[in-house]
Nucleic acid binder design. Structure first.
Lengths: 233, 233
DNA sequence: AAGTGGTCTAGACCACGCC
DNA sequence: GCGTGGTCTAGACCACTTC
């Protein structure tokens, strides 16, 4: 109906999708088990499993052992954002990338990071501020707290040739973290950096990463005014 | 090292991850084929395939037939955002949900939507504005253009009991679309709605959806000042 | 042409979670 | 308990790319 299905588990997913969309199976309904569907479609159970697993990943059905598979009542929209290395992002726009280290100093754990960073009393972090440029225009302002106990080599870098952002991505594996997306009004400093009026709305991302239970880094990336982050769904 | 691996393809993924993280395989390197790895790990090729497919999904390796699997040089950060139905979002915060239809009128295709909506000259759309409340506090302001030719039933709704947002999610399947995340300064009207000062930074999402090549709807959701959208990575 | 990943099969065992 | 999804296997054919 919408697109051509090559030949495989995607065709089965398409048929299941059709039944969900056309209300053959209503939201909340229990749908047949994998064995039954496999028989109906004349394929192996593995293939049905692949199709159902994909639908579950996109949130359209919920699956539980013994309980079976149900059509989701409120299918959430899911969007996968790909946040590239800043250098790659800039160069993909056909611009020349450049960065400059603005600040670099030891700092105590800021109070507002207490929740994210479980560190001993008075633990010191390396604080760095970096401006990333696209064709000499400020593109992203990066404020970062890094736990040098977890990443000793980080403390010895000068970040002339490579930015803190790039170095960490290439050298520090992480096991998990969280990200926050929000809007903020540019303060005096930020406005001066971006050559705009104070109060201008800017898009920002905060990211905290851990390796196991060891905190690695907390960073806020503030994007140039007017930046729009896109994705396909 | 970081977490316990149950027993399965995740253990293999963990071992492959270790080799990537510890530079046993350098960025850009060609890693062994599935058959070799299966032999090394003493498992079926399917299992190795599952592990490698997962690493490819997260962007850590790139795979091509005949060419093989390579360690990615600039592994991008990927984050999956789950945008829930507004009602569910509000109720998950323990608040009472309510919505109000503010505006509803026929409008011609706005010029700035020309790129997203491929419609005939002078085509009319149904424009709706809806305010979504959490405990009687304005939470999200929704501005929506809907193509009633694609979704005829939409034009007959009064959106008293159910919001346009909720109705569309429950009744209109889509095959694809795009989303944009950005920050904006609240204008006079928006500031009045949110009971804040004009110029306050607000987080917003624009979403356009199609069914095949037929445009369905374009919506801008503007969130209450201070809203932060979170996700785990 | 040949190698590599992509997929499918038929069968099996396991683990979670309702009852 | 026991039913359902989660996973694994061994083998096979196919499709895409590079050579």
């Amino acid at each position: 109906m919408t697109a051509k299905e090559a030949n495989s588990w995607t065709r089965i997913r398409g048929e299941l999708l059709r039944r969900i969309n056309e209300r053959v199976w209503q939201p909340g309904d229990l749908i047949p088990g994998e064995v039954d569907l496999a028989e109906e479609f004349g394929c192996a159970r593995t293939t049905v499993n692949r199709a159902l697993r994909d639908l579950a990943d996109s949130g359209l059905v919920t699956r539980k052992r013994k309980a079976g598979t149900r059509v989701a009542v409120n299918p959430p929209h899911k969007a996968t954002l790909t946040i590239p290395i800043i250098r790659a992002d800039v160069e993909a726009r056909g611009c020349v990338y450049r960065h400059a280290l603005v600040t670099r100093e030891e700092r105590y754990l800021p109070h507002h990071l207490g929740g994210a960073f479980r560190l001993p009393e008075g633990a010191q972090l390396l604080y760095t501020e970096t401006m990333h440029y696209a064709d000499d225009r400020p593109f992203i302002f990066e404020e970062r707290y890094t736990n040098v106990d977890t990443v000793p080599a980080f403390g010895t870098m000068d970040f002339e040739d490579i930015s803190a952002n790039e170095w960490l991505v290439q050298n520090t594996p992480y096991s998990g973290g969280d990200m926050v997306f929000f809007a903020a009004n540019a303060d005096e400093t930020l406005a001066r950096y971006f050559d705009t009026a104070p109060g201008t709305a800017v898009f920002a991302i905060e990211r905290t990463t851990w390796d196991g239970s060891d905190p690695i880094t907390h960073v806020r990336m503030t994007y140039t005014p007017g930046y729009r982050m896109r994705t396909q769904i």
